[in-house]
């Protein structure tokens, strides 16, 4: 499959580019990061020497770069001074938690977003459509973290009833796995809802526009002419075609989703990549910040790659093989 190969090669070269970019961003641009850190923390000479080594700051840029690459390949992401732990272990745990949050909210966003978008788009110009568009624009205009703050206020202070912080109850003792599962699920509700609320607006608007475009295509008139019911027309003929531009916009969505997740994790202290990033910014813990930035970006590149493949599956015009 030449396409798959080609696309895979593009993915690899993008990852390579981001790794290089990352190297310059954290190792070259700031000048001596030790100086930066020393500005905010009191460090003794021993700590500075240790850091210098951990940053790989000896030797020429090129040799630094290759040492950096080889460390990366071996999964060595450095040592965190604020967490007193290897960065790879830190980000590994965080990544899992973030993926849990992203999966949960993406499910909601995709299913509800498509349903509402199709609902509005197939009723273009009617009151229900206008109401959907306006509410979506309002939701879209709210900062994600603020929506989270409102929910924390509502469910943590005002009404109560749902956990507003962390991934599980502190010091809880579980009698079985199911209890543990339920505890995590309860903690997952508010972060997921927050993330979904804002991103769903984006999805609704894109789906609606795409469906409206598709509805004016000639083949939709054919479908009507065949005597199909309204539902069959919209779903069997309109929907799949409308999904193509939605998938094309998925790069934007993925980026927005990641941005949203960071904010949500901060507000709800959800122990994922976003919270890690936040804490590392506060502590100016560069190795952690660097690793979480790199990992997030690579994950996004991979997600875009997957979206491209899905597009191929959905659109027979670009599919190479059956």
């Amino acid at each position: 499959m030449p396409f798959l190969l080609r696309r895979f090669f593009t993915l690899l070269s993008s990852i390579f580019a981001i790794v290089t970019f990352n190297f310059f961003l954290f190792h070259i641009i700031p000048g001596d990061p030790i100086r930066l850190i020393a500005r905010t923390q009191r460090l003794n000479a021993e700590a500075i020497a240790k850091m210098r080594a951990s940053f790989g700051l000896d030797g020429s840029i090129l040799s630094q770069y290759f040492r950096y690459l080889s460390k990366l390949v071996h999964g060595d992401l450095g040592y965190s001074f604020s967490f007193k732990e290897n960065v790879s272990g830190l980000v590994g745990r965080a990544l899992g938690n973030t993926l849990l949050l992203l999966t949960a909210s993406t499910l909601i966003v995709v299913i509800l977003g498509i349903a509402i978008g199709v609902f509005a788009g197939s009723r273009q110009g009617k009151k229900s459509d206008t109401a959907t568009v306006i509410s979506s624009l309002i939701l879209w205009s709210m900062p994600t973290f603020w929506v989270g703050m409102l929910l924390v206020f509502t469910f943590g202070v005002w009404v109560g009833g749902l956990p507003i912080s962390g991934i599980s109850t502190a010091n809880a003792v579980y009698s079985n796995g199911f209890e543990y599962f339920m505890d995590i699920s309860r903690h997952l509700i508010l972060p997921t809802v927050t993330l979904a609320i804002v991103d769903i607006a984006f999805f609704i608007i894109i789906t609606r526009t795409a469906l409206i475009d598709v509805m004016s295509e000639d083949y939709m008139l054919t479908a009507r002419g065949k005597g199909l019911g309204r539902r069959a027309i919209v779903w069997r003929h309109g929907f799949r075609n409308a999904m193509l531009p939605v998938l094309t916009a998925s790069a934007l969505y993925i980026s927005a989703l990641v941005g949203g997740a960071i904010q949500v994790e901060v507000v709800f202290s959800w122990p994922g990549m976003g919270l890690l990033m936040y804490n590392s910014v506060l502590a100016r813990d560069y190795p952690v910040l660097e690793a979480s930035f790199l990992l997030t970006t690579v994950a996004v590149l991979v997600a875009n790659f997957a979206a491209d493949l899905l597009y191929r599956v959905l659109d027979p015009r670009v599919a190479v093989s059956k």
Partner: peptide
């Protein structure tokens, strides 16, 4: 376009 903006801005 594909690099997520917020992490990069934070960095």
């Amino acid at each position: 376009l594909v690099v997520p903006a917020l992490p990069l801005m934070i960095a």
